[in-house]
Every structure is written in C-alpha cells, then in structure tokens.
Computed example of a mutant assay.
Amino acid sequence: LLSQVASLYDPIGLATPAKQKGAILVRKAFQETGGKNLLRDTWDTPLSERLREEAIHLFEEYTRLNQITFHRSLTPVRRIGEPWGITFSDGSDQSYGAVAYFRWETKQGILVRLIESKAKLTPLDQKGEAVKAEVCGAVFAARLRKYIEKHSRIQVKRWLHLLDSQTVLGAIQRDSYGYQTFFANRVGEIQKSTSVGDWRWIPGEQNIADLVTRGATPEDLKENSVWQNGPEFLKQPVEEWPTKSAKDVAADAKEGINRLQSCLTRLIRVIAWVWRAATKWKEMLAKTSTRSKPKRK
C-alpha cells in the first residue's frame, strides 16, 4: 500500500486530492497495526478486510489517473492585462492544505487556471483541534503565493486568499505576539509574506480546498471540473463573490451579539414578570388560607 501511494509522482500537486486520499489510508493502516508502537515485523502485517477493500478501490482509482489531462499553459490566448492570484486553504482532523489559481480576463470572458496545490496530513496530536489545521492550511496558502511570485515570470495584479474559518481570519488581523507559540509563529509567517487585507472568508461549501483535506476520485479532477476551473463564482464580478472581509465578519458577529443581548434582555424581563406574578399569587394564597382557617374555641 505504501509503495503504491508513494509511486504517485506529482511535484506540483495537480492531483493532490487523489494522492492525499491514499496518504490518509496509509495512516489508517499504520494506526490499525499498532499506532505509534510500530515494530519491524508490522510492515508485513496483512490489512484488515475493510482496509483491504479500500486499498483495492484506491488502486483502481490510481489506474484511472492516467486518463486525466491538465492545462499546462497558464497564460491563455487573447488575454487582457495581468491575472489575479487566488488561493483557497482548508484544514480538518485528517489533512490540511491549499490550492492556487490564476484568474484571467480574456476577450471571451473570465478564465481560471489551476497552478498548483500542497497538502499534508494533520498530526495525530492535533486531532480534535480543527483551528490548528486551518491555520496550517493558511500558512500553505501564503507559501504558495511566495513560491509563485519567486519562480513565475507572470506578474500578478492582485492576490486574494480565501478560507472558511472566521477564527483564523480574525487571528490574521491581530499582532502575532499576542498568541501562544504555535499560533504566533504561523500567524507571523502569514503576515510577513502576505497583506492581511487580502484575506477573505467564504462559506465552507464554496471552498475548493475541501477536496484536499478529504481526498477525491479521479473523476473529481477531470478536465472542466471544479478542481481544474475553480468555483463558478470566480467567473463573476468580484462584487458578487460570496466572500466577506474581516471587517464584515466582525460587523456580522457584533450584530449577532446585539441580537442575542436583546433576546436575553427580553427573556430576563419575562422571567422577572413571571417571578413577580408567582410571588403575588403565593402571597394571595397564603392570605386566603389564613382567612379561611377556622378559629379554635
């Protein structure tokens, strides 16, 4: 299983979702054979029936990868001006990563081209802490931008970094020295290589980097797929994108808190009214019982 997954050579990450699916399965196999306490003889331990079926299905998918084609020309014909660079990042308890696109304006309309992607398994000690995987995915997005700017001769007009974690988006806007070491180092790297104003929030269902974190089949990566062409909203005017800046997210959060406070205030008033009514009713019952009580002779 490990040799088959490692034999998939994809240096720039065009098929990262398919490769990452295999990496996740390999880790499941290691965990099944003993977790961290791996011995030399565990390499030859047969897979369980469940993992064996998953591995066979994975090998069948890998054989279909040679049918997938990708556009290797990042500069389309009849283009107008310079492209925008768009990155998507995501993280989960299984994996985290990022993917980068060029958004070109051409005489035929908007054209989006896949550049590259990068992913890595989430450390086992970070399971259950999705925000750590999210911030690691954001770091990968910043590194992709830095790599493209360094090695590509294409001048990018503007960069936008999209992610679906409002927590990470808010953390990027603040000074990194206010966090613990894990977050401080990563937020600091993001702030050093990117502009905090370039980061935007998008709904989770619009985040194409989700394919990186959970894996995908070859059919999900074929030509004209969402993976190769990016989400459909990228072809629309920027004003119509389902994105929010950190300022907009903070305003929505403040509005939500205000609504919650208003609801709590009304709830407190209702509880106070019921409490007063119950107290008065209790006093009336006590007076009534006292008057109706017969006097002893």
Rank of each mutant, 00 (worst) to 15 (best):
G22L: 10
F59D: 08
G97N: 00
F70R: 03
W104T: 03
Q31M: 11
S89P: 10
E116H: 07
T75F: 12
K36H: 10
T16N: 09
I115H: 01
I24K: 05
G35F: 01
T87D: 03
L74H: 03
L39R: 09
A119W: 06
A18C: 14
T75V: 14
T106C: 08
L25I: 10
V99E: 00
K28L: 13
Q94M: 15
G81Q: 02
A18D: 06
I86C: 07
T42Y: 08
G85S: 08
N66C: 13
A98F: 04
R103G: 07
R52P: 08
I115N: 01
G91L: 04
G97Q: 01
E105R: 14
R78Q: 11
S92C: 05
L38P: 00
K36A: 13
E61M: 14
H57D: 15
S48C: 10
A18F: 08
K19V: 15
E61I: 09
I56R: 12
F30K: 02
K118A: 09
I68F: 01
S73I: 08
E49F: 10
R78V: 06
T33N: 12
L47N: 02
V26K: 00
I68H: 01
R52I: 10
L25H: 04
G34N: 00
R72A: 10
K120Y: 06
K107D: 14
I86P: 08
L111C: 09
R40S: 12
I68R: 00
S92P: 06
Y96H: 11
N37M: 11
T87K: 02
